[in-house]
Lab assay of single mutants.
Amino acid sequence: MEVRTIKVFTTVDNINLHTQVVDMSMTYGQQFGPTYLDGADVTKIKPHNSHEGKTFYVLPNDDTLRVEAFEYYHTTDPSFLGRYMSALNHTKKWKYPQVNGLTSIKWADNNCYLATALLTLQQIELKFNPPALQDAYYRARAGEAANFCALILAYCNKTVGELGDVRETMSYLFQHANLDSCKRVLNVVCKTCGQQQTTLKGVEAVMYMGTLSYEQFKKGVQIPCTCGKQATKYLVQQESPFVMMSAPPAQYELKHGTFTCASEYTGNYQCGHYKHITSKETLYCIDGALLTKSSEYKGPITDVFYKENSYTTTIK
């Protein structure tokens, strides 16, 4: 009895394709271990004539594949690729409408935090270190965002349907971005203890939790000093293409032309909904596939993004 075979390709990165001759009487799992086709788990399936010449994702289970996976995804987590594939199996079914010149995501599976993050990423200057993220990001900007969303979920250790947080998501993504040249110098002034300067680099240099107003941050924000008295913390120097200011959701007025974009969060910790506000020729609110415009805006804002380049204080 002759062994019926077909020729397929296996890959971990969709760049390096490895030619395989597979036995049609055995499952993919018996031949390769966990195997995925377009995100779908085909591990328990036997090869079919229609699979001839198709590319299958496999887990990096030998040295060659491990090197290829690390170079593309910059992670050695053995569960990463499987999590990416199972997320992709959902995100490829989502709709990605162009809204006001940006790629958004039609609401499904509690994905409003991903839509808000995706919209924000198209408006701030950011370059990702893992080629996987950078490639998928370019495709997302062009309207094909399924891979990018699935990668975000995998890097953030999230599953489809789980509630997510924009600030946490951005923080994970910033860790995989090139923020080497970003720098922030802060000064804390206390009447009792004097003053202390701190220099922050990388992710810490672009994120701040405690106030939404970048102007206020430049002037000074009140913080408790270690001595128990009130101290003032203010920005001395900022070198970065953008800054992200966050605070627990509270009524906040966004003035046209003073910011790049913002995240609105309605609801409580267990259950809520994100919308995205962007400042173009007027203010726009993007909620999944829905767009509304207004000249002014007041609502429960939790993150505001500002364009920056270089700032030095005039406070002496």
Rank of each mutant, 00 (worst) to 15 (best):
V8H: 00
Y73K: 03
M244E: 01
G210M: 03
F9Q: 14
Y36I: 06
R141A: 10
V166G: 08
A154R: 00
V99R: 07
Q30H: 14
P60D: 15
N100K: 14
K92S: 11
K44A: 09
F128H: 03
Y214K: 00
L102D: 01
N14I: 08
F259Y: 04
T211I: 13
H74C: 02
V221N: 02
K92A: 10
L290D: 12
S263R: 00
G101S: 06
S263T: 10
G220V: 03
G101Q: 07
S310L: 15
I301N: 08
A150F: 05
E253T: 14
T278Q: 09
A136H: 09
L254E: 04
T314Q: 15
H18Q: 11
P130M: 03
E52M: 10
V99P: 09
N89D: 12
F148W: 04
A69M: 15
Q195L: 13
A262D: 02
E71W: 06
N268G: 10
H273G: 00
L153R: 04
D287E: 01
T282G: 14
G82V: 15
T313W: 12
V221D: 02
Q20N: 15
Y172Q: 11
V12T: 09
C227P: 01
G194V: 02
H276Y: 01
H276S: 00
T199S: 09
L133I: 09
C182L: 04
G272F: 09
L186W: 10
L118P: 07
Q30T: 12
A69R: 02
G220P: 08
Q216G: 06
Y208R: 01
L283N: 02
T260Y: 00
K93F: 09
T169V: 09
I286Q: 09
H276V: 01
C193N: 08
D38L: 12
V22Q: 02
E144Q: 11
N100A: 15
L17P: 00
L81I: 15
D38T: 10
Q196R: 13
A108M: 02
G101N: 10
E264G: 04
D109C: 08
T260L: 15
K293R: 08
H276G: 01
N89V: 14
K233S: 13
Y265E: 03
Y274N: 00
Y274H: 00
A154N: 05
K280C: 10
V42T: 09
K233N: 01
Y36E: 07
T76N: 13
Q31Y: 14
Y274L: 04
V189M: 09
K191S: 15
K46W: 11
N110Y: 04
L121E: 02
K92M: 08
D287T: 00
L133C: 03
N178S: 12
H74F: 00
H51G: 06
L118I: 10
A247F: 06
Y265I: 03
L59K: 11
N14T: 15
G33T: 05
